[in-house]
Simulated scan of single mutants.
Amino acid sequence: MFIVLILTIALIAAVLTSVYFAEIIAHRVGQPYGTLILAIAVTVIEVALIASILLSRSPGSEAVVRDSIFATIMIVCNGIVGVSLLIGAIKHHETVFKPEGSNIALALLITSSTLAFVLPTYTTSTPGPNYTLPQLRGAAVACFILYVTYVYAQTIRHKALFLAPVFDHDIHGSKSHPQPSNQKTIISTLALIVTLLAVIMLAKQLAPFIEVGVQAIGAPHEVVGILIACLVLLPESFTAIRQAIDNKMQNSFNLAFGSGLASVGLTIPVVAILSYMFGITLTLGLDAKSLVFLMLTFILSVMTISMGRATFAQGIIHLVVFAAYLRLSITP
């Protein structure tokens, strides 16, 4: 118990430290590059963790890709978005954002998620909820193209659509802070990488204790993936909530949807290569319950961002769906 407490305290400290350095980098490079850098950094390390579990060939490892990425989508689209909307609305009455940029990100996330996790359930070339190798290669290429499209749209072609709306008090009431120097930015970048690695390693150290706890309550094995995904996504969660408090809900959406897209668009190509090299058959197709949650989440997300503003009610709806997802994952 004492070891779990120490690991938990160290994890929280690593998360808070990573958020601090991520904010320095974001201030230096500006938005939307800041949120994009944090999303990619966390996802790349998450991909490495998933790949190590996949190559271990432990029981249930063939489904770790599906369970981890699906958990990430549920966490970012319902958990992070829900908390950010609720806190932002409580402080500012309602949150304002640009639906055009969020619509682009959400459409790309819906498409990539469908290709990766919905269609394998209904293909007939294999008996299980998985792709053949040619089908997996095609899905991997498509997911990667969709992610590259998102990065191009966010940073070059339609950059203005992903920037938080500017209010009068932002111009006249806020203090101007000098940009960090190049030296400080480089140091912060290296420190961010180190702290994110620490987050992943600490989460991995906590995983056996989490697994014991999951077994003790008789929950399915995929709950372990959900809890680890929650730990890994802590830096993005803290940053998204901070942005919502500052009335920059657009940045919170960029983090949430961008993290989901990065998780699908970067992980699926990597595991497709590993599947080909090591002859691993991946279980990608979602079951009926998960398909319902995925469909409900995307429908609610479209409704939430369609008007360009949201109140606390939308935040509560997303959090209720997230709570139901967690509850039914523990007792399916």
Rank of each mutant, 00 (worst) to 15 (best):
A89T: 10
Q215V: 04
E46I: 08
G34E: 01
T185V: 10
I104R: 00
G265K: 02
V141N: 01
T121G: 04
T8A: 11
G173A: 01
I90R: 09
I273G: 02
P178C: 03
A203C: 07
V223D: 02
R242C: 10
S102M: 13
F21N: 10
A48L: 11
K289V: 09
I90S: 11
F278N: 12
S125W: 11
S125H: 13
A240M: 12
D170I: 06
V141K: 00
A160Y: 12
F2I: 14
L119E: 10
I24K: 15
A105P: 06
I45V: 09
I299P: 14
Q154N: 08
I193G: 02
A22C: 01
E94I: 05
L115C: 05
F293D: 01
I228G: 00
C230H: 01
T283M: 03
A207T: 08
T95M: 13
M277F: 15
I69N: 02
I210E: 06
L291G: 15
A41T: 13
P134C: 01
T281C: 00
H93V: 07
F70Q: 05
I299H: 11
A107K: 05
H221D: 08
H172K: 08
D287N: 06
K289Q: 15
T283E: 13
I280N: 00
F2E: 09
S84T: 12
I80T: 09
T311V: 00
P269I: 00
L85T: 07
A22E: 03
A219N: 03
I186F: 15
Y147F: 11
H92P: 15
A313T: 13
F278G: 07
N78K: 09
F253S: 00
V118S: 01
L274P: 05
L55T: 06
S301R: 03
L7A: 11
L266W: 07
T17V: 12
V29G: 12
L300M: 15
T35M: 15
A10M: 12
S61I: 10
T155M: 05
I305E: 04
I80N: 10
I171H: 08
I316L: 08
M277T: 06
H27N: 13
Q154C: 15
N78L: 11
P59Q: 04
F278C: 04
V199Y: 12
I280A: 00
S174C: 11
I6C: 10
V44A: 11
V44P: 07
L115Y: 02
V292K: 11
V151A: 09
L192A: 09
F117E: 00
Y147D: 14
P129S: 06
H318W: 11
S61Y: 02
